[in-house]
Design a protein around this nucleic acid. Structure first.
Lengths: 104, 104
DNA sequence: CGGAATCCTAGAAGATACTG
DNA sequence: CAGTATCTTCTAGGATTCCG
C-alpha cells in the first residue's frame, strides 16, 4: 500500500495497463491532477520499478510512460480495484453502508 | 485507494478476513501499531462500512471487530494484494527492479 | 511539451499519558 | 481491556511560477 497508496497512482496504472501513454495524454486522462503531482507520482512509480520512462529528444519534447514487466504483474489487481471502486461508489456510497449486496 | 490507503488498513483487513478479532488480538497481530492508530483506522473502516464493531458491556470490556458483507467483498483483493506485496518484497526489493520475473 | 523550483497547508502518523 | 486526550512531527498533495 505504500507503493500504491498515492492519490493518483491507481488511476495512472489503469491508464498504463491499456498501453503506453505520453505525459500530456496522462494529464488529459486524469482531470484535476496538476503537472507537479503527475510528475511526482510517475517518478515514484518509476523508482518502485513499476513504470518505465522513455525520453525522446525531439522538438517539441516527447516522453512516454509504460508499465514494466513488474508493473504489469499488477494488472489484475489494478482492474479489480478499479471495478470494486466503481461498484462501491455507485452502489454503496449513495445509499446506506448497510444497504445493498456485493457483486461477485 | 482513499479507503484502503491507510498505513495499516490492508493489514487489518487481512486479519479480519480470517475471522472476528478482538481489539487486543489485532494489536498483537500488528507489531508496531499504536493503540491510537489501531482505533483510528478501525473507526475509518467502520465509517466506510467495511468493518462492524460490537461492544460487549462486560468487565473487563470486550470489543469485537468483523468484516461486514461489503468488507468481505474485498476478500479476494485483500488476499491478492497481500500476496503480491510479499512477492515484491522478497523478490524485487532485495534485488534490482529490473531483475527477476513476475509470479503468475 | 514536459517538466523543475518554490511555497504552503491539512491531515496522517506517532509518542505519551490518562481512564471507565 | 479498550479505549481518549494532547502534543508533535512529517509529508502528501496542491497552487503558482519559471524554463530548455
Amino acid at each position: 500500500m505504500e507503493m500504491l497508496g498515492g492519490r493518483w497512482k491507481l488511476a495512472i496504472l489503469k491508464q498504463l495497463v491499456a498501453g503506453t501513454r505520453r505525459f500530456g495524454e496522462l494529464r488529459r486522462a486524469l482531470p484535476g491532477i496538476t503537472q507537479r503531482m503527475l510528475t511526482r507520482q510517475l517518478r515514484e512509480l518509476e523508482a518502485d520499478g513499476l513504470v518505465a520512462r522513455t525520453v525522446y529528444r525531439e522538438v517539441p519534447p516527447r516522453v512516454e510512460y509504460a508499465l514494466t514487466e513488474v508493473g504489469h504483474s499488477l494488472d489484475s489487481i489494478t482492474e479489480e480495484l478499479d471495478k470494486w471502486g466503481r461498484w462501491y461508489r455507485e452502489t454503496i456510497r449513495p445509499e446506506d453502508p448497510s444497504g445493498p449486496r456485493p457483486p461477485a
